[in-house]
Amino acid sequence: MGGREDEGVNARDRDGEGRARSARPRDGLGRPLPYGAQGVERQPEGVVRAPGETLAEAQRLLDAGMPFHAHEVFEDAWKSGPEAEAALWRGLAQLAVGLTHSARGNAVGGARLLRRGADVLAGREEAAGAEPSYGMDLAGLVRWARALAERVEAGAAVDAAAEAPRLSGRGGLG
Score class of each variant (00 low, 15 high):
S102I: 01
G123F: 10
E72M: 06
A139L: 10
A70Y: 08
E53Y: 04
R151C: 02
G172C: 09
A107Y: 08
A122T: 07
A111G: 10
D119K: 13
V142P: 12
R26V: 12
R124W: 00
L99P: 10
G36W: 01
R146C: 07
A96F: 12
L88D: 06
A145K: 13
A128V: 10
P165K: 08
R90S: 13
A149E: 03
A107F: 04
A96H: 10
V40L: 10
G140C: 05
R112F: 03
D137H: 01
A111Q: 10
Y134E: 11
R143D: 08
N106T: 09
G30W: 05
E45V: 06
G117P: 12
A56F: 01
R60I: 00
R116F: 04
A86K: 13
G135C: 02
L92F: 10
G16F: 11
E85D: 09
G98F: 12
L167T: 08
G16Q: 11
W144V: 05
L113K: 12
G28E: 10
R90I: 07
A103E: 03
D76F: 14
V152S: 01
E53W: 04
G110H: 08
L113Q: 11
L95K: 14
A50V: 07
A20G: 15
A118K: 10
L148C: 01
R115P: 03
A23I: 02
P32M: 09
R60M: 00
P67K: 13
V120A: 07
V158M: 00
A122G: 14
V120R: 09
A118V: 15
K79T: 04
L55Q: 11
A37L: 02
T100P: 13
G155N: 00
L167I: 12
P32E: 14
W144Y: 07
R112Y: 00
E131V: 11
A156H: 04
L62H: 04
L33I: 01
A11R: 15
Q43K: 13
R143S: 09
R31L: 07
A139F: 05
V158Y: 00
F74R: 13
R104F: 09
S80Q: 09
E153W: 03
R12H: 14
R21G: 09
G65C: 04
R143G: 02
G46N: 08
V9I: 15
A20L: 15
G98V: 08
D119H: 12
V97L: 06
S22G: 13
G30R: 09
H101Q: 02
A111H: 13
P82M: 03
W144D: 04
A149Q: 03
R12W: 15
F68M: 14
A164S: 02
N106D: 15
D63A: 06
E5V: 14
A130K: 02
R60P: 00
F68G: 09
A86G: 07
A147L: 11
L173P: 05
R143W: 05
G8H: 10
V47Q: 02
A20V: 15
D15P: 14
A87D: 13
H69F: 12
A122I: 11
L114K: 05
E75H: 00
R60K: 00
A154K: 04
L113Y: 12
R24W: 03
P25I: 05
D6T: 07
A162G: 01
G36V: 02
A127F: 01
T100K: 11
G30M: 07
M66T: 12
H69W: 12
E72T: 08
R12N: 12
R31H: 00
L148D: 02
